[in-house]
Structure formats: C-alpha cells, structure tokens
C-alpha cells in the first residue's frame, strides 16, 4: 500500500506505508482518515496529503531518511555524547542551511529521530568554533559585549572561564 505526498510546489511523491509511517503527521492524517484500514477508497494516485510547508528538495531528502529507517528504530532521545551511526552523519552532512531546513521540516512533520539527528548535525558544525567563527558561519552580527553583564552568578558565568586560554 502506498500514499502520495504533495510538496509545497505541488510535486507528488509516492511512498509506501512503512516509509510514510516514519512521518508523524502523515501517519496521523492517514490513520485519522482510516486510510490504511481501507474505508476510504484509496488508490495509489487518488489520495494525497499536501505538506504545504515542505519544499520538494527537502521532502525528497527527508524521504531518503524515512526509507533508510523504514525497518529499524532511529535514536529518539539522548544527550550530547551519544554516537549516531555513520550513515546518519553522512546523511545529515555539514551544510548548515540544509540542516536547518531539515530541522524545521522534521519538527513540522513530527519526525523525532530526524529532529535529533539534525540537532546533532548542528552540534557537529558548531563543534570547535569560537564565537567569531560561529558568527561568520551563521552570518550574524556579533551584537554582544560581555562587559555589559555584571550581575551574573558564577555558575551562569561559566562561559567566561570555560574558553579562557589556560
């Protein structure tokens, strides 16, 4: 059984049930419509779900992940020192913009495993960069001067000493 997903641009993607099941909103929509139970007369191309916030390029990328994880459970919770499989890290890559698109889409589509992977991707991109490097990477203006802050207790002020050269 399969279902058609329609991207923001109107492009149609035909996906099988195990793949689509990875996408939370699709699963909810489909179950809500009793789609998989067969009550709604569903042929392969008559029923589609429009995902108005996801572009074709991002949707196709997300479907690659869903296809990979159609038979296995992705990691869905963890902390910063957890290890993702190599495939995941190669998949998410180091393109910050693309990771952010994936992140937003994963949030919108309710895919917790992919959301976590995107966060891990961002953490990897930021890893080892100093504040100036992060500004350059994100293309934002450094608008913060830490001299302005005076009333910080020590635990919160850890960033003052943590990067201090020793």
């Amino acid at each position: 059984m399969s279902i058609t997903l329609i991207s923001k641009e109107g492009a149609q993607f035909l996906v099988s049930k195990p793949v689509a099941d990875r996408i939370g909103v699709v699963r909810d929509c489909a179950y809500g419509a009793d789609f998989w139970l067969g009550y709604a007369v569903a042929t392969d191309d008559s029923m589609g779900i429009t995902l108005a916030n996801v572009t074709s390029s991002i949707l196709s990328k997300i479907l690659v992940w869903c296809e990979h994880y159609k038979d296995m459970e992705p990691l869905v919770d963890g902390d910063s020192n957890m290890e993702f499989p190599e495939w995941d890290m190669a998949y998410i890559g180091h393109d910050m913009n693309q990771i952010l698109f994936v992140l937003e889409a994963a949030d919108y589509l309710h895919i917790p495993g992919l959301l976590l992977l995107a966060c891990k991707g961002i953490a990897d991109v930021l890893d080892g960069r100093n504040p100036r490097g992060i500004c350059d990477l994100l293309g934002i203006v450094m608008d913060f001067s830490h001299r302005q802050e005076v009333d910080m207790d020590k635990e919160n002020g850890y960033w003052r000493w943590f990067l201090h050269p020793t």
Binding site: D79, S80, N81, L116, C119, K120, I122, A123, L126, D127, G128, R129, N130, P131, G133, I134, C135, L138, I140, V141, M142, D143, F144, H146, Y158, W159, F162, L163
Partner: peptide, 14 residues
C-alpha cells in the same frame, strides 16, 4: 544538544 565548548561560544555570539 550542544556540548560545553559550543555552548560557551554561543554565549558570546549574540
């Protein structure tokens, strides 16, 4: 999800 050095850096970004 960030680790400590990245968090410390983010403090000083904006």
């Amino acid at each position: 999800q960030l680790d400590l050095p990245a968090l410390a850096a983010c403090h000083q970004v904006c």
